[in-house]
Amino acid sequence: MMFWIVLALMTAAVSLSVLVAVSRARHAPLREENDIEVFRQQLAEVEDDLRTGAVSAEMAEAARTEISRRLLAAKREADGRAANQPASQRAWGLRVAAIVAMPVLALGLYFLVGAPGVPDQPLAERQAQLNRNPDINQLIARTEEHLAQNPDDVQGWMVLAPVYARQGAYDKAEAAYAQAIRIAGPTPALELARAEMLIFQQQGTVTAEAEAMLKRVTTAAPEQAKPRFYLALALTQQGQTAAAITAWRDLLADANGDEPWVAAARAQLNTLTDQSGSSIVSGQETAPTEAKPDEPRGPTREDIEAAQDMTVQDRQAMVAGMVAQLETRLAEDGGSVQEWSRLVRSLIVIGEEQRAQDALAAARTAFDGDAEAEAQLDGVAQALGLN
């Protein structure tokens, strides 16, 4: 209630001060009216001087003529000012209306977009709230500043690296894990985390450096499934089909079946065994089937639904690895126009526009002269906004 009382008093004070100023300006005497009164007094004084003999008749006549001329000029100016008086009155009325309307409009706008029911938020309380819930970027900046002054603080690097990873700054996360390894030594956990960051930097491709670290992790901790998953993915990407099938089968054989990576492993194994003439579905081997030449190969709907339980990073690695595998196979062995179209779309989805352009160009070269295939590729390019 006190807020509204203060607001009303402030509004009234401002409005009254403006109204008083406008009213004084309106009722102030005009300069021409003052001049006319002065000239009339001067004429009366000339007549008095003439009666008393203070001035001669000739001087009195000359004075009367000059004063009368000035009096007429002042009257003409006063008459012209009076002719414009209605417009001035209208302008004054508009000013008064504006002064009254502004508080009303301001109050209405406050009720529309304001929050009169929200309690006060003193500066000290807001600052304390910021200190209790600091921005993540501020925390990162503080940690970076601390590590710049204390580069051998292994705990600081181990805290900062996962934060970088969650923000998608995989290069910074990899560098932070490298610093932790430099200080604390190469432990399986640190080398696995660093290898993952190297893989994520390459959109799911297992690099030679990452593979070497994963092998060391597997030797030190053979019970861990994640490094074996990436090593099987590396074999798949390198085109070592037989070794990759064995690696995927061994990995799935040791799984409970409810791990988040099982769907991705089965999808990879299905693709490899399909290429080699047999099929593994849900971990069970079936008789070889003849694949349709134009049917795109990939994970089943069940595999895709199961992949929803994976972490974002694992799912990104799975998708990028499968796209890289399809890209390698089509570049080496060729494929149907549907498979090329799927590759182009997949590359766009993972943000590899230049690779999608290159794949589209390779597909057009492969199907040069095939009007139907070229028309389908043109439709894909148009839908994706590619050249």
Rank of each mutant, 00 (worst) to 15 (best):
L147H: 05
E174Q: 13
Q89F: 11
E174M: 12
L130M: 15
L123V: 08
V118L: 14
P103E: 03
G156M: 11
V154I: 14
Y177W: 12
A98R: 03
A115C: 05
G168T: 08
W157C: 02
P134H: 06
D135L: 13
A173L: 05
D171Y: 00
G117N: 13
M158S: 12
L112C: 00
L147I: 06
Y164H: 07
A169F: 09
A101V: 03
Q167S: 02
A161H: 11
D135P: 02
Q89N: 13
G108F: 05
A141S: 09
E174I: 04
W157F: 06
G117L: 12
E145D: 11
L107Y: 07
A91Q: 13
V163W: 04
A176C: 10
Y110E: 03
Y170G: 06
G93W: 14
L130Q: 15
G93C: 10
A173Q: 06
L147T: 05
A165C: 03
E174F: 09
Q149A: 15
N150Y: 10
Q167V: 00
R132D: 08
P134T: 01
A141Q: 11
V113T: 11
E125H: 06
R95L: 15
Q149W: 00
R95E: 10
P119W: 04
P151C: 02
A176F: 08
A115T: 09
A128C: 02
Q167F: 01
V154E: 13
L112E: 06
A175R: 11
Y177H: 10
L94N: 08
Q138R: 10
A97E: 05
